[in-house]
Amino acid sequence: MSNASLDLIDQRILRKLSKDGRISNTQLAQQVGLSPSPCWQRVRRLEQQGVITSYRAILDQEKLGAAEIVMIEVILNRHDDDTVETFGKQMLKMPEVLEVHLTTGEYDYQIKVAVDGTRGYEEFLRKKLYRVPGIRHSRSSFVLRTLKDVQAYLPED
């Protein structure tokens, strides 16, 4: 679905929900200029069309004991189906792996990992990442500060 098929009300609904997924339908309707029933119908339609894929809570990593975020770039030693599939399955098994992106360029994947300091990072590398078959090389960077963190981009008309 392209942005062109979303009218201004749909776009307002999406912007509000992306900032506060727990907003009540009544509040959402007031803020986008609809009555509750048509607003609810639009939200349901956006869900059914797959524009809204899920709702979730944003958790505080620091309070959960894994405050440091590390971005790890990985090169696989081969790119056959088995190596790629094995790598993907292994990433899904690791709870500290927050995101995995297949990328273009020098590195094959970029992985976002939550760890408890440098010791937690070393443990993740030795006990988990380096045990995944097919990895030729990795390069890591600790995130010092996150300036922006959004889940989707909604182009404006």
Results as ranks from 00 to 15, higher is better:
60 D>N: 15
78 R>F: 02
103 T>D: 05
117 G>P: 07
33 G>A: 04
111 I>F: 02
42 R>I: 10
88 G>P: 00
129 L>I: 02
108 D>L: 08
71 M>N: 08
102 L>D: 03
8 L>A: 14
140 S>Q: 02
79 H>T: 04
27 Q>R: 13
49 Q>G: 08
118 T>G: 07
6 L>A: 05
123 E>P: 00
80 D>E: 10
23 I>K: 15
136 R>E: 15
134 G>D: 03
111 I>P: 00
5 S>M: 09
14 L>C: 13
9 I>N: 07
13 I>K: 11
66 A>E: 10
151 Q>T: 08
47 E>Y: 09
118 T>Y: 12
4 A>W: 02
39 C>H: 06
79 H>R: 07
35 S>G: 11
105 G>Y: 06
35 S>K: 15
154 L>D: 14
3 N>P: 00
57 A>K: 15
53 T>E: 14
157 D>H: 07
81 D>H: 11
49 Q>W: 09
52 I>G: 14
126 R>L: 09
67 A>H: 07
157 D>E: 12
23 I>S: 14
58 I>N: 08
50 G>E: 07
29 A>C: 04
6 L>G: 12
92 L>P: 00
16 K>M: 09
149 D>M: 04
52 I>C: 12
103 T>N: 10
53 T>G: 09
31 Q>R: 10
34 L>N: 07
4 A>D: 08
111 I>G: 01
74 V>N: 10
67 A>Q: 12
37 S>N: 13
97 V>R: 01
134 G>T: 02
133 P>W: 10
120 G>Q: 03
149 D>I: 00
23 I>F: 09
120 G>I: 02
148 K>A: 10
81 D>E: 15
6 L>W: 08
122 E>C: 04
20 D>M: 03
97 V>L: 00
41 Q>V: 06
67 A>M: 07
31 Q>G: 01
108 D>S: 05
64 L>D: 08
23 I>H: 04
149 D>W: 02
60 D>K: 13
95 P>C: 00
121 Y>S: 05
139 R>P: 00
131 R>I: 00
129 L>P: 03
82 D>K: 14
140 S>G: 04
86 T>V: 09
118 T>M: 11
69 I>V: 07
44 R>Q: 15
138 S>W: 06
150 V>K: 04
146 T>C: 01
157 D>Y: 04
93 K>C: 02
2 S>G: 15
77 N>K: 12
29 A>K: 09
118 T>Q: 12
98 L>E: 06
20 D>S: 11
93 K>F: 01
67 A>Y: 03
84 V>Q: 08
50 G>C: 04
39 C>D: 09
13 I>D: 11
22 R>H: 11
